[in-house]
């Protein structure tokens, strides 16, 4: 499936097969979740990041079914480059109505970045001016978990993490995704 037809599929799923909701409701609900976490975890932003990733992971495990059902993608991705394309043009499109740009492929084609010029989760947000948040908090970290969880369900073990975020004063919001390995079917384990 070509990149253009993936883009068309993404558009089609968004337009015709997706029930929609006020974006600001989602933005504010996500904001409330992050703010509450920061309170619950006493401003330990490293823990907040972990928790957001974990919550995202749980979502990803279930989201993949919704994705497969709505996108009706029959064929598995031929390679990781295809996977990236699908994530951006179909996945992000049908859930968040955005298509982050794919950049910075590594030479072995196992790592790439997603550049977000729009991020509905971070609309209206300004990190706390406490001297720590801008260096420690990855506000949208839930998205990393979602990707990790979703890809695990389709036999890919990946690492996803943000490397920059405009909320931290960087010029871009960039998520790096790294393929660790393809998950083969489980072989009988030794008892150890």
């Amino acid at each position: 499936m070509s990149s253009t037809s993936r883009a068309r599929l993404g558009e089609e799923v968004w337009k015709l097969r997706t029930d929609k909701i006020n974006a600001e409701l989602v933005t504010l609900t996500y904001g409330s979740v992050v703010a509450q976490l920061c309170k619950d975890l006493d401003g330990d932003y490293a823990e907040v990041n972990k928790q957001l990733d974990k919550m995202g992971y749980n979502i990803g495990l279930r989201l993949i079914e919704d994705f497969l059902a709505k996108s009706n993608m029959q064929q598995k991705c031929a390679n990781f480059r295809d996977t990236a394309d699908v994530i951006s043009k179909v996945g992000f499109k049908m859930f968040l109505n955005i298509t982050p740009t794919i950049v910075n492929w590594s030479s072995d084609n196992k790592q790439f970045s997603l550049l977000f010029d729009e991020n509905p989760l971070a609309d209206f947000v300004e990190l706390p001016d406490d001297g720590k948040a801008q260096s420690d908090l990855w506000y949208s970290n839930m998205l990393c978990g979602v990707i990790r969880g979703a890809l695990e369900m389709v036999q890919m073990s990946v690492d996803a993490h943000f490397v920059s975020d405009v909320l931290r004063g960087n010029d871009t919001t960039e998520m790096r995704i790294n393929l660790i390995r393809y998950i083969e079917d489980e072989m009988p384990q030794d008892d150890e």
């Binding site: 968004w14 997706t18 029930d19 006020n22 609900t29 928790q51 749980n58 839930m142």
Partner: peptide
């Protein structure tokens, strides 16, 4: 007013809300 008429998928909200409940 920039996002006044913006939309996301209902399931994005549902997944977020469900996880909010779980947490």
């Amino acid at each position: 007013n920039r996002t006044k008429t913006s939309e996301l998928s209902k399931s994005a909200f549902a997944f977020l809300f469900g996880e909010m409940v779980q947490y």
